[in-house]
Amino acid sequence: MNKQRFSLFDVLNVFLLSVLSIAILYPFWQTVILSFSDPSSASSLGVHLWPEKWIPDAYRFVFSYQDIAAAYFNTILRTVIGTVIIVCTTLLVAYPLSKKDLPYRNYFTIFFLIAMFFSGGMIPEYLLIKNLGLLDNRLALILPGAVNVFSIIIMRNYLMTIEKGLEESALMDGAGYFTILTKIIVPLSKPVIATVALWAAVGHWNAWFDAMIYIRDPSKTVLQMVVRQMMVDMDLSQTQFGGGGMTNANLLLSNVRAATVMISIGPIILIYPFAQKYFIKGIMIGSLKG
């Protein structure tokens, strides 16, 4: 039926999405150029699509300024572990709460919901981490956010829509709930698991505030803290008598900042096409079964 030539709708659709892609990409390309450009040409008037010369000075400066490798390692570590934990807790809570016949279900739902809206604030949370002895410990970056209520709600609602036939027959066969969760529910909900995982991973990748207040040891810091230091703290004009100034007078602050941006998102852009393949595959498999 759909094998005929492209309809007007298709053409329009492709055009629209291409415009969107360009609009999204343009600022990034500009950043790439800025990070490699000679200061004077980068900031001159007009639209630049290609730098006159590729100059890596800004990157050299950023790499010499901070221990980027350790920051990368810590960020990857927290992202991987943190994501796995969030996906697990989300499934463990969403599945029981998706059962309409679970007694006292609403009390449990409320228990989780309240946590989504109210929190005690920075000071008691800091005191808690301190009293648990987790200051300067990477666990302080993972445990407080281990349960994500938002993901739980999304997952629960998704689970409520999937068909119950398979599950019921498994119950009849004497399978336990845990077996059903891992053997039946998880394969059926791949798309939403992928979504939750992606949310969690990006959340961890971008998090910096917790690292700022809980981590003191520079070898345990995360990438976004380094980015922030380059973007925000480099501003501090009060660092009068303590260095912190730029040592290469030929660089613009904006060159350095652009390079920092590229360093922090570079790996994502590189890994993304591969990860995306699996991600989409996950969704597709899910849709075939669903």
Binding site: A115, F118, S119, G120, G121, I123, P124, E125, L127, L128, L143, P144, G145, A146, V147
Partner: peptide, 9 residues
């Protein structure tokens, strides 16, 4: 990690 610090409210 969530309810214990709520006394901060």
């Amino acid at each position: 990690f969530h309810y214990v610090p709520m006394y901060g409210i």
